[in-house]
C-alpha cells in the first residue's frame, strides 16, 4: 500500500510509562511502522501518574496538521488529556486503552480523517472477544 501523505496522530496517555510505551509499540506492530503513535506515560520522574509536559511533547511529535486523537487510560490521564482538547483538532477517544489504540492506529494509517479515526476508535468499545 502507499503510505498516506498525512495521517492523524495518536497519543497514548497512561499512568504507567511502560504501559504507554508498550501499548504504542503494539499498535505500531499491528498498524504498521508508518503510523504516528506516541506514548505519554508516567510522571516526569518516571513514577506512576500523568505528565502534562509529556502529553504536550507527544502531541507535537505526532501532529501532522490533520488532527490528533488522545487515548487516556483513566483518572488523572483523562483529566490531563482534557486540558489539551481543541475542537476538531485534538480530541479524546473514550475507549478501552489497548483496543482503542489499535483500532485508531489502523485507521489512522490509512490516511483517514480525524472524525473517521475517532469513530473507529469508539467502535473498539463494541468489539466482543467471545
Amino acid at each position: 500500500m502507499t503510505i498516506p501523505e498525512k495521517q492523524v496522530g495518536i497519543v497514548l496517555v497512561s499512568h504507567s510509562e511502560a504501559l504507554a510505551r508498550e501499548a504504542a509499540a503494539m499498535a505500531v506492530q499491528i498498524a504498521g511502522p508508518h503510523v504516528h503513535v506516541a506514548p505519554a506515560g508516567g510522571t516526569d520522574d518516571g513514577g506512576c501518574g500523568t505528565s502534562a509536559d509529556k502529553v504536550a511533547a507527544a502531541i507535537e511529535q505526532v501532529d501532522q496538521g490533520i488532527g490528533v486523537v488522545l487515548i487516556p487510560d483513566l483518572g488523572s490521564s483523562v483529566l490531563t488529556a482534557r486540558l489539551f482538547e481543541q475542537p476538531d483538532s485534538i480530541v479524546i477517544a473514550d475507549v478501552p486503552f489497548v483496543e482503542g489504540a489499535i483500532s485508531a492506529a489502523v485507521l489512522a494509517g490509512t490516511g483517514a480523517t480525524l472524525a473517521t479515526v475517532l469513530i473507529a476508535a469508539q467502535e473498539a468499545r463494541e468489539y466482543r472477544k467471545l
Binding site: 510522571t43 500523568t50 505528565s51 483518572g75 483529566l79 490531563t80 482534557r82
Partner: peptide, 10 residues
C-alpha cells in the same frame, strides 16, 4: 498542572 502528576494537578 505540570508538577503534580495525580488528578489533583489538573
Amino acid at each position: 498542572i505540570r508538577k503534580v502528576g495525580g488528578a489533583s494537578g489538573p
